[in-house]
Design a protein around this nucleic acid. Sequence first.
DNA 1: CAGTGGCCCTGTCTGC
DNA 2: TGCAGACAGGGCCACT
Length: 280
Amino acid sequence: MVRDGLARWVAGRTVDSVEVRHPRAIRRHAPGPGDFASRIAGRTVEAAERRGKYLWLPLDSGEAVTAHLGMSGQLLVEPGDAPDEKHLRVRLRFADGGRELRFVDQRTFGGLAVDELVEVDGTVVPRSVAHIARDPLDPAFDDAAFVAGLRSRRTGVKRALLDQTLVSGIGNIYADEALWRTKLHYARPTESLTRPAGLLLLGQVRDVMTEALAQGGTSFDALYIDVNGQSGYFDRSLNAYGRTDEPCGRCGTPIRRDPFMNRSSFTCPRCQPRPRRGRW
DNA sequence: CAGTGGCCCTGTCTGC
DNA sequence: TGCAGACAGGGCCACT
């Protein structure tokens, strides 16, 4: 939805000027703000693409403006006379004088960069995205390869889900929700999962992502473009994530919160019992 | 090399 | 009331 919106608003338009308001927002662009701006200004945006949590705008130069929205990042398409957001980091003005593109990010976990486009596995992606796996909604996603990769890991199943080189687009929320649906504990050793169990898990991941996407779709019409898509989904559909001490929707047992990778994991202690020999 | 843990950042909330 | 600390979280990097 974010990608669709961006494509609709910026594809075919030529960038006039680039304003970097906060250097940290382009910290992954090593050559710095001057180089960043000069590679974008005067170029025409050809499309908007996405993989996992990355989003990019291919330019007519063979490079692309690559964005990672982190947790709090937004790409907004707004009239030039709209007041600057408090956390406005980068602004792109277009030669046609129409709406401008703004990167807004409170916590600056995200950022922009300009990157060379390369071909990986039959798909053209920015170099910085080349190591990111396809997401499960990608038509070219290879289910069998994913399950094989999952089973060959020597770690806990949630760690594997969060590893973007194995599968992309799954964050802490989607992981907990898919694990709850599959009745798997986050520390379940990946090598102990059967192929059918792996496919079942993948199916639940897909369902969670599809439902989240459907519910987040509405926010975009207001030109509020946000990869999190949390608006409706966050409140209505979560079964485990953030529901500490609330009853499990299946069995009524209070949901439990555990520290996990400097974050949290939410499980139903009854539906998702901790394995005896769990892997973190 | 694969796996793991710490840290980045800032606003909000909780508890003393 | 005010302040300290926990928490949110994807990814990068150093370390084992």
